[in-house]
Design a binder for these strands. Structure first.
Length: 886
RNA sequence: GGGUGUGUAGCUCAGGUGGUUAGAGCGCUACGUUGACAUCGUAGAGGUCGCAAGUUCGAGUCUUGCCACUCCCACCA
């Protein structure tokens, strides 16, 4: 341990936070002690995007994890916080492509191999940012075990589980309608599509009926340009007006192709015109209709969402083609009307472009099958959500889950372990050698294989995170010790993306839940409760907040605001408030330092004699038990508030004040005990506050005692202490009495320096004893000259103010305290001024033109002032009456 | 359309199983520089707990209905 230095006058977190973190990391304080036989506790971090920067959501998420991790470490458990980053397929590829675009290079110019090299280079360069920022926040992860979803071990896990799933028939290839992102030219999963409300247009036009001159079927659509892909028009057979057309053909204008009019209930007679054009290759509903009626599929789009050779408008974008189509329809005289139409349009969550349903070959995970075990595990309590209500969301989604499209036509990601033979036979093996061997065996001769170029959805590898980071598929000590992990802490927006997938993957591969609990927190919003977004410009950078207020203040804010799953609204004032709390603690430590309160090793807090010391010890134990209980039940705000209340309310506001008469008195024995107690309490505060504010607590821990036996990070968390309830009552009573006297003084408007003599009437034996033993303290804190007890025979003279206090009465003689003549004069003067003011208000408010012309606010303000003045006047008159006779 | 939350002080929010006087932070008012701290201290003002009915000895808390808002999922030719 290093030398103790005098504490600086001012609390400046910047000066020590980074230095302290470096010390922790360098001395391996965050590594689990694998030789220990204690319980294991583990958390895997939700891996941030490798190219990302820390935002407030991360700050919240990681603060909560760090609190749990530090708390459990202090409980003596063998603790692992597994850290790492995600390769974030689309997001990362996008960033790198954007960078290349600055130099006018596209990824196609480079080619796949070169491009991936560039991404790796970019990762080396910028990948460390978010990890540095996590350190700055104080996250006590084991950095020596940092992983990346694309590193060799994790890639091996991906290949292994893929092959298993494939061979179990749970991964399959299919030609299906999928969400197509035309910017990245890849399929995306349902979850990556966001529906946005927009005002679009509804186009009404008509298709001529084949062979019947002058008869038409009327169509309504929001996407006229898809008509070139129509292969039918559907009408409900319950539609009396239109059902006579069923079985006939109609002609698609412009291209003059005949298509059948079919009967299908998908066409709701109440909606639109009652007739629906069916475009099976470009609409999910139409696809189903097409399947029911065995309709042909006509694809009209290229991969970049321009129209293809199956249309007259090849090469145009959908919007261009739409305009052109309408123009032609109008020329042909079949266009009827165009109306505004509110509708929802699907956009890619990353690309921001409109998502087109497109027929393509893709790979799917049979999620409905995998979901079964994942649902069962939660139903049977093997994994529990906190708060519990989130399991409803989970069940709802899992029970309606669709096959998960896992193939992406990107370059950055895990390339699928799939090889094709010359006749397109699929070989799925963990590596090329095995695939080759399998193929050679299959064909009976050596053949050339072609590898699938698609990569996997990023969430596929994230889904393995809980066990792949611990060494799976190898059998490792860490896997044995730390799997299943203790708790997963994440936001509700990630339940589907990640929590659900982890559950499915773990139940399938490990036959165990990936985590025993899942703590779900809300979103961090701005001061007004609005979602933070770069486009709105209302984001707050946690690094700037840390720079300004310190990481401890930000962390404490996050903990104090975290109430079981509700959103957190940013509040700079509140963060400042918690910085002030840190300052307060700093100054309390300085007070201890000045009064030579040093940690005494052989000190036994259960053997203190002084009432105030017994009291604060009991309070400290109570606060500790409170924090413990709340942390055990993930009630972060309650836990944070319990430390806050104790440190500020009990220790700073009362105990330090109560100790002053001792320190400034001359009872040396009392001084010795109080010094040791104060030091013990300060240590206790540092201990229970450490998970929340690790930096200031460590700095104080290191500088308030020479030769600490243990680092604060590993100091034992006190459990199951006996609380001396009796020790609480006496001082609590004195505190109430002191507060009462202070209120009385303020109410009576007595001079600040006035020394009072107080009589306590009808005091019982306990109160009398309290007055006797705590006389010194009470007089000092309530600023009394003297306090004494009297029985019911005590005479109450007219100059005495009476105030009920519990079962007794406080008598406060004013004679000799207040110069009544001077006070009367002062009050009369005040009354004069108030009267004049009120007169003014009355005059103004009875002035008709003022009422009429002045803004309502001004009038209201004037009325408020009048009411205020009158209220004050009443008080002054009351005070005058009270002293009238003296 | 299906589901889920929320409505408590001027603002932002706490109030696990119904129980004295409903709390916190910030803001506000008055006073205060007293030997850790003005990034502070002391005292204070401010609430018919969304509305209505019900259960109960007792409801912010439980039940029902209504009003307002949030979020998620699906769909809208």
């Amino acid at each position: 341990m290093k030398d103790v230095k005098m504490l600086e006058k001012n609390y400046t977190p910047k000066d020590f936070e980074e230095k302290i973190y470096a010390e922790w990391e360098n001395s391996g304080d965050f590594k689990p002690d694998m030789r220990s036989d204690k319980d294991a506790y583990s958390i895997v971090i939700p891996p941030p995007n490798v190219t990302g920067v820390l935002h407030m959501g991360h700050a919240l998420d990681n603060t909560l994890q760090d609190i749990l991790v530090r708390y459990n470490r202090m409980l003596g458990k063998k603790v692992l916080w597994q850290v790492g980053t995600d390769h974030a397929g689309i997001a990362t590829q996008m960033v790198v492509e954007r960078n290349l675009a600055k130099d006018g290079i596209s990824r196609h110019d480079l080619g796949r191999e070169k491009f991936i090299e560039t991404v790796w280079k970019w990762k080396e360069q910028s990948g460390g940012t978010i990890c540095k920022q996590l350190r700055r926040l104080g996250a006590s992860c084991d950095w020596s075990r940092e992983r990346f979803t694309m590193d060799e071990g994790l890639s091996r896990a991906v290949r292994k589980i893929f092959v298993n799933l494939y061979k179990d028939g749970l991964i399959y290839k299919a030609k299906k309608l999928v969400n197509w992102d035309s910017k990245f030219m890849t399929a995306v999963s349902d979850l990556e599509v966001i529906q946005k409300e927009t005002v679009g247009k509804m186009y009404y036009y008509k298709y001529p009926i084949e062979g019947v001159e002058g008869e038409f079927i009327h169509i309504a659509t929001t996407r006229p340009e898809t008509m070139f892909g129509d292969t039918a028009v559907a009408v409900s057979d319950k539609n009396e007006k239109l059902k006579h057309l069923i079985g006939k053909n109609c002609i698609i204008p412009i291209i003059n192709r005949a298509i059948p009019i079919i009967a299908d209930d998908h066409a709701d007679p109440e909606k639109g015109t009652g007739a629906v054009k069916i475009t099976p290759a470009h609409d999910f509903n139409d696809f189903e209709v097409g399947r029911r009626h065995d309709l042909p599929l006509i694809n009209i789009l290229n991969e970049d969402a321009t129209l293809n050779e199956n249309t007259p408008f090849e090469g145009m974008t959908t919007l261009e083609a739409r305009a052109k189509t309408i123009e032609k329809l109008t020329e042909l005289g079949v266009m009827e009307k165009i109306e505004d139409h509110p509708m929802v349009i699907p956009y890619g969550d990353r690309s921001g472009v409109i998502i087109e349903p497109l027929m393509t070959d893709q790979w799917f995970v049979d999620a409905p099958v995998l979901a079964k075990e994942a649902i069962r595990a939660v139903e049977q309590g093997e994994m529990e959500f906190v708060p519990k209500s989130y399991e409803k969301t989970y069940f709802e989604w899992m029970r309606n889950i669709q096959p998960w499209c896992i193939s992406r036509q990107l370059w950055w990601g895990h390339q699928m372990p799939i090889w094709y033979g010359p006749d397109e036979t699929i070989f799925c093996e963990e590596n090329e050698e095995e695939a080759q061997a399998a193929a050679d065996k299959h064909y009976g001769q050596h053949v050339e294989l072609r590898r699938e170029t698609d990569v996997l959805d990023t969430w596929f590898s994230s889904g393995l995170w809980a066990f792949s980071t611990l060494g799976w598929p190898d059998k490792t000590e860490f896997l044995d010790t730390f799997y299943p992990t203790s708790v997963l802490v994440t936001g509700f927006d990630i339940i589907f993306f990640w929590v659900a997938r982890m559950m499915m993957m773990s139940m399938y591969m490990m036959k165990k839940v990936p985590f025993k609990k899942c703590y779900i927190h809300g979103l961090v919003r701005d001061e007004k409760g609005q979602k933070m977004s770069k486009s709105k410009g209302n984001t707050v950078d946690p690094m700037e907040t840390i720079e300004k207020y310190g990481a401890d203040a930000l962390r404490f804010f996050m903990a104090a605001m975290e109430t079981q799953g509700r959103d957190v609204n940013m509040s700079e004032a509140r963060i400042a408030g918690y910085r002030n709390f840190a300052t307060k603690l700093w100054n309390a430590a300085r007070f201890c330092e000045m009064n030579e309160c040093k940690t005494v090793k052989e000190f036994d807090e259960n053997k203190v004699e002084l009432a105030i010391n017994k009291w604060i010890v009991a309070k400290a134990k109570q606060a500790t038990a409170d924090v413990t209980q709340n942390l055990n039940s993930y009630r972060f705000s309650d836990a944070a508030n319990a430390v806050y209340q104790f440190a500020w309310g009990s220790f700073c506001d009362w105990y330090i004040e109560l100790s002053k008469p001792v320190f400034y008195g001359d009872d040396e024995v009392a001084k010795v005990e109080t010094r040791a107690t104060a030091a013990w309490v300060l240590d206790r505060i540092l201990t229970i506050l450490h998970p929340f504010m690790p930096f200031i607590t460590t700095e104080l821990w290191n500088n308030t005692c020479e030769n600490r036996e243990c680092k604060l990070v590993h100091t034992a968390w006190p459990l199951n202490e006996d609380i001396d309830e009796n020790a609480l009552t006496q001082i609590d009573w004195a505190i109430d009495l002191i507060s009462s006297v202070r209120s009385l003084r303020a109410e009576m408007n007595l001079p600040a320096g006035a020394k009072l003599n107080i009589i306590l009437k009808d005091a019982d034996k306990t109160s009398q004893a309290n007055i006797a033993s705590l006389n010194n303290i009470i007089c000092s804190l309530a600023r009394l000259e003297k306090i004494e007890c009297a029985d019911d025979k005590c005479e109450v003279t007219p100059d005495m103010v009476q105030h009920v206090f519990k079962e007794c009465t406080i008598l406060l003689p004013l004679k000799g305290v207040v110069d009544f003549a001077a006070e009367r004069e002062r009050l009369n003067k005040e009354l004069d001024i108030l009267n004049k003011n009120i007169e003014g208000y009355v005059r103004k408010l009875s002035n008709a033109s003022f009422i009429e012309r002045a803004p309502a606010q001004v009038v209201a303000e004037e009325k408020r002032r009048q009411a205020e003045a009158e209220e004050k006047k009443a008080k002054v008159e009351e005070a005058l009456a009270r002293i009238a006779n003296f």
